[in-house]
Amino acid sequence: MDDALKRTKQGVLLAIIAYIMWGIAPIYFKALGDVPPFEILCHRVIWSFIFLAILLYVTKGWQMVKETLRSKTKVIYLLITSITIGINWLVFIWAISIDHMLDASLGYYINPLFNVILGMIFLNEKLRKLQWFAVTLASIGVIVQLVVFGSVPIIAIVLAFSFGIYGLLRKKVNLDAFTGLFIETLVLLPVAFIYLFAFADTATSHLTNNSMSLNVLLISAGIVTTLPLLCFAGAAVRLRLATLGFIQYIGPSLMFLLAVFVYGEAFTPDKIITFAFIWAALVVFTWDGLNNNSNNKRLAAAQRKEALEIEITNETLIQDINDIQTQNNHETK
């Protein structure tokens, strides 16, 4: 029991660290404000690939990479996930660069609700009543912004959609985070190299012309990408999905606070209404998840108790039968 509690505490700590790093990642991308978004994406791909290659070498994970590359189905899935995660990264970096961090935050708030819809459509998962209510609330928030204010939260929708599809396909692949991300960056690597060394012609595209501090920031893209993933992977094997789902709101919440209170993005009426509906939806969604988890625990406990009672009854019957047979044997003698 002590070991289980220790693992849970470690998992919670790792999850919090992971989501805090994801939540404050905009600070890093803001520091690269002079670098074009696609150029940042290319550096993110290249240095993440190198960092992951080193990690796989240290952890002797190359065998898993080889086995994965032999599977045609997994390779096809990873080709698609490479595109979706590339789009997600690019839109996120672009949103930060044009001062739309609130929209990025909204996208990651919507993502858990979008995942529920994807599960219903592609995995035949049934939605409970409160889940339907939560999805309806979120939809109303987006519709109000569209109809009343005439604005479409396109960044939020693209981020939620791309990351949701990415998560769904990665679930289909059933592959560990590091092997999968390594192959995804491997797929994107030629595009990143070709753009940086053949097409990019900006003030920051040539590392030899950059300051040391800027180059260090660009190279750090690999660490910024993979370090939270390391912590998340460690948390995922120690915690229940419900616990991880609750902790994940740290990320977009930190983005929201940074956008409003640090970078001064306007919290306009359309965003206030949309966020209000999304937050209400998440409260309902989280409450339903916790309540369902509690009911499942009670049901499991009741089933264990019933199984134990049946086992005890069976043992008692066997003992009674043995006693009767023993008594009959004595009477026969």
Rank of each mutant, 00 (worst) to 15 (best):
E315R: 13
T332P: 00
L159P: 05
Q303S: 04
P269V: 07
G150L: 05
V262M: 12
D288C: 09
K30G: 00
K6I: 03
Q325R: 13
I96G: 02
R298Q: 14
P269N: 08
W47F: 15
I110N: 03
F161Y: 04
N295M: 13
L230H: 07
I16V: 15
Y263T: 01
I324S: 09
P112A: 09
L186R: 00
E309L: 13
I165V: 15
N88R: 05
P252C: 08
Y19Q: 07
T202R: 02
L102D: 04
G86A: 13
G33R: 04
S253D: 06
N111G: 03
I54W: 06
A259D: 07
M64W: 01
P252E: 11
A300S: 14
A266H: 14
L78Q: 08
N174L: 00
W89E: 06
P190R: 11
I46F: 03
R238A: 14
A236V: 11
F199A: 09
Y249N: 07
L230Q: 12
V224E: 13
L159V: 04
V75Q: 04
V147H: 05
L168F: 15
D323F: 09
H330L: 14
S220N: 15
I17S: 11
D3C: 00
P37S: 11
L230W: 14
A134T: 06
Y108W: 06
Q327D: 13
D103W: 09
T73S: 12
N209I: 00
D3Y: 06
L175S: 03
T268K: 13
L230T: 12
S205K: 00
V216D: 04
N296V: 00
